[in-house]
Design a protein around this nucleic acid. Structure first.
Length: 592
RNA sequence: GGUCCCAUAGCUCAGUUGGAUAGAGCAACGGAUUUCUAAUCCGUCGGUCAUAGGUUCGAGUCCUAUUGGGAUCACCA
């Protein structure tokens, strides 16, 4: 049982003993830094029921706890706030529990499972900054859910078909001259992206030429030769035309190779990949079912709809009049497929918040169709990433390319690292690995520390920053701890348990307090689908350690018991930092 | 026009179910290293929590309205 729960129990007993009051939900909060103590109980809420001033209640409760709660060493009352101090022996006991628990912060399997879908790129252009927020979020939340006791299946639904894919294929057919990633010296995804841009350029030119002849713009967009060709190509694709399919496969393969490289660099992977080319026809049988059960209705033209107006939404099309699918149709089918394949009791979609409406409709439909898993569906909706110059727009070429960005953050880490002179004895390969670790650490932390739901600003200068509230700051703290531990090992300082009668500094109590909170913070992150909690925690812990490090001498301590305690504490902090950053997909170095 | 999200220090962000004097980082300025990694630590400066009401012992947090920003309401995905 956690210290907090123990204290709550004691307070509950105190209320019963002193006032015959049975209070079920006792709330404790961490004591503010300016006051003495670690836990605070607020007594304002009891004044009515007890008809006593808040200070008196605090005093009476404090006295009772001092006598009956063995963890409480002292208390003070400020207005309606009862602040509790904790015995050093209690802290040491907690630290020893943490040290002994190899799985600290990781819950045992709870029998539940979750599917997390993320990344889900189009195969007509390379990944960009927005994808990175998506992938980092999806990867991190998968790790967090796993640590919280769930089995997790990571999936990706690749958008590998449709008119936009045909556009780059068409441009390649016309202008490619048999170019390959090898011959062009480009990653496959970048090569395809190039042709997508070329399509757009030529298409615009054609539209302009047509409007110059007096054709209205709307009409010109439809009549432009390349647009017509692209649509024909889509039809050929749907009819399984061999040449079209061959080209499609070739070009998609290039893209997958390119994506694969990027995924590998950032440490992302999937347990199962779904391809839209294989799922886009699904869902029609669900629509048929829903029609017979009256969930859907048919309009005079034959199109099928659902009416969600009684839930504050609109009517939504689920099948076209000609019987072909829309986005919603395939998502219905794919959702069913996912649950059929894996039977997870939860399914999470990491998708930008511009699709909030789509998912609220999707989930409501699933519910009405009586799908047992409907309540387990969750849209992890995240905000857009803005640039200092404004919104990212692919058409205006203001997107930040993922590969370029990764190269930039790595280069920034390299510049800083080499300027220190501390790494001079590192072999070149280790340096490369370290700079990549630090650059990615900076980037991942930068994107994950912000509440996912919020729109965020991407400042290139800040993203490569290595000081302050950053990934490398935490990585540095870990390296620092490892350095201390290496020296402690050489000095043969015992690393087992801490002696229960050791006297603690306040910075040490503070650190142990932070350590005890780790499991709860992971649980919070899992509950709210927010890696930001873990990021904030890792930063607080690293900061706390650096304060401690500056305040006391660890290896210079002459008392062997205290020396050992500080080394043990350092070790526990180092391990916890490593676990917390791992939940963010961030590696930490031994030296830097 | 309907619906949803957002607004906290010069900038980027925290702020647990309503609790104390609203916190970090960056930027600016000033300190700290004969000793464990200075990619560090300590300090100073910086706020009418968009505005106006309401709920109550107490509101950045809950409710209403207003203003400003964004998204969405496609037989696109």
């Amino acid at each position: 049982m956690t210290l907090e729960l123990q204290l709550k129990n004691h307070i509950r007993q105190a209320l019963l003993a002193l006032y015959q009051l049975s209070e079920n939900d006792v709330v404790l909060q961490p004591t503010k830094k300016d006051f003495e103590g670690f836990y605070t109980f607020v007594t304002f809420g009891l004044t009515k029921a007890l008809r006593k001033p808040p200070v008196q209640i605090g005093q009476e409760l404090g006295q009772y706890l001092l006598l009956h709660a063995p963890q409480v060493s002292a208390f003070n009352v400020v207005q309606g706030f009862l602040n509790l101090s904790i015995h050093d022996q209690t802290w040491v006991g907690l630290l020893n529990e943490i040290i002994a628990d190899k799985n600290f912060g990781t819950k045992p399997a709870n029998g539940h499972s979750a599917m997390v879908e993320f990344s889900s790129p189009n195969t007509n252009k390379p990944l960009h900054l927005g994808h990175l927020r998506n992938v980092f979020l999806g990867d991190s939340i998968s790790r967090i859910l796993k640590a919280d006791g769930n089995e997790v299946v990571k999936t990706c639904l690749v958008n590998d078909r449709g008119i936009h894919i045909c556009k780059s294929m068409l441009a390649y057919q016309h202008l490619g001259n048999g170019e390959t990633p090898q011959s062009a010296g480009l990653k496959g995804d970048h090569l395809i992206g190039k042709y997508y841009v070329l399509f757009d350029r030529e298409y615009k030119r054609q539209v302009e030429a047509l409007t110059a002849t007096g054709l209205p713009e709307e009409e010109a967009k439809k009549q432009a030769p390349w647009m017509k060709e692209a649509q024909q190509m889509l039809q050929k694709w749907e009819q399984n035309d061999p040449d079209t399919r061959t080209l499609w496969q070739q070009m998609n393969q290039w893209v997958y190779d390119g994506f694969g490289e990027t995924y590998q660099k950032i440490g992302a992977n999937f347990d199962k990949v779904y391809y839209e080319s294989q799922t886009y026809l699904l869902g029609k049988d669900l629509v048929a079912d829903g029609l017979t059960t009256g969930v859907f209705f048919t309009k005079p033209d034959g199109s099928v709809w659902i009416d969600l107006t009684d839930e504050g939404l609109d009517q939504k099309l689920v099948l076209r009049a000609d019987g072909t699918s829309v986005y919603m149709t395939q998502d219905l089918g794919t959702t069913d497929l996912k649950f059929k394949d894996y039977g997870n009791d939860r399914s999470i979609w990491v998708v930008g918040n511009e699709q909030d409406y789509h998912f609220s409709v999707l989930f409501k439909i699933m519910k009405r169709l009586g799908r047992s898993y409907a309540d387990g569906c969750h849209h992890l909706s995240y905000g857009m990433v803005d640039l200092p110059s404004g919104k990212m727009k692919s058409r205006e070429g203001t997107v930040v390319d993922a590969d370029e960005l990764i190269a930039e953050v790595t280069a920034a880490a390299e510049t800083e690292g080499n300027s220190k002179g501390k790494l001079d004895d590192f072999p070149a390969s280790e340096k490369t690995q370290l700079f990549s670790m630090l650059g990615l650490g900076a980037l991942k932390y930068y994107l994950l520390k912000v509440d996912p739901q919020k729109r965020m600003l991407f400042n290139p200068a800040e993203s490569v920053e290595l000081h302050g509230n950053t990934g490398p700051f935490i990585q540095y703290t870990h390296a620092r701890i490892r350095s201390v531990l290496r020296k402690a090992h050489a000095m043969e300082v015992p690393l087992g348990a801490v002696a229960s009668d050791v006297a603690l500094q306040n910075s040490e109590r503070e650190l142990i307090f932070l350590l005890t909170q780790y499991p709860e913070r992971v649980a919070d992150a899992a509950r709210d689908y927010s890696p930001a909690f873990v990021a904030q925690y890792a930063y607080d812990l690293a900061k706390g350690y650096n304060s401690f490090y500056a305040e006391v001498s660890i290896l210079g301590e002459t008392d062997p018991v205290t020396l050992s305690a500080r080394v043990c504490l350092s070790n526990a902090v180092g391990l916890t930092l490593k676990k917390a950053t791992a939940l963010l997909g961030i590696d930490v170095p031994e030296r830097m």
